[in-house]
Design a protein around this nucleic acid. Sequence first.
DNA 1: CGCCTTTGACCTGCGC
DNA 2: GCGCAGGTCAAAGGCG
Length: 232
Amino acid sequence: MLNQGLTENQGMPSEMGFYSNPTNLTFLPPLLNLQQFLKPFSMPPSLSTDPSSNHTEALISSSSSSTPNLRQDVPASHNMGASQLLSLQRSRPSLCFREWGEGGTTSDQLIEGKRSNGDHHINLGVSALKMKKMKARRKVREPRFCFKTMSDVDVLDDGYKWRKYGQKVVKNTQHPRSYYRCTQDNCRVKKRVERLAEDPRMVITTYEGRHAHSPSHDMDESHGNNFCWLPI
DNA sequence: CGCCTTTGACCTGCGC
DNA sequence: GCGCAGGTCAAAGGCG
C-alpha cells in the first residue's frame, strides 16, 4: 500500500514539493471513509477517477509551519480533527502566512491593508512594519491536499463554486496552471489545477485551506472514492 | 446587470 | 543585490 503510492507518484513535478521529507508521510488505509474523513477539509466529494487505480491513498499537509515551535502557536480549534490522525509533514518555509487568533486578523487581511494605498480598499490600520514582524513570528501554511485524477475536463465538480483568478504557464510544462478561489464570502479556500507533464490525461488538483461552509450543491457520488491522493 | 474568464502587470520568495 | 519563477491582482470583455 505505502510503497504502491510512493512508486505511483514518483514522476510528480518537483516544484510541488513532493517527497521533501518522505519519512513524515502517512497514508490512509484503503477504503477509509473519505467523505467523512475529508469533511472538515476542502475535499473533492466527486471526482472522475483513474479506472486503473483500485486503491485510495491520501496524504494531508496540515497547517505545518516552517519551524517546529511555530506550530504550537496554532490554536487547537484550528488544528482540525482529521489531521490528528496523520503525521505532519514539515514543509519548507511557507509562501502563505496566516495569523491565527489575535482578533481573527489574518495576514491575508494584513497584506490587503498593505496594498490598499488608502483608496478603494479597506485600510485595516496595520503598518507594514507590524505585518513584517507578524510574518517573522509565525509562518503557517493552510492545510493543503493534492490528488490526481484522469479526466478530460480540468475542473472537477467538487460541490463548491469556484472563481478563476489566474492562470500561469509553469516552467517545463506544456499546460498552464489555473488558480481558483471559492466564491463563498469569508471563504478563502483556493485550488490549483494543472495537468501532469508526463501524462496530460492526468489532472492534478491541489486544495489549500478548508471551507467554512457546506458545498453549494450535492456531489455526484457515482464516481465513488476511487481516486488517488498525492503527497504535498 | 451580475458573474465569470482572460490576461498582462505586479508582487513576493528564493536561489545564486 | 539580482534575476527567475510562482502566485495574485484587477481591468477588460464575454455571456446568460
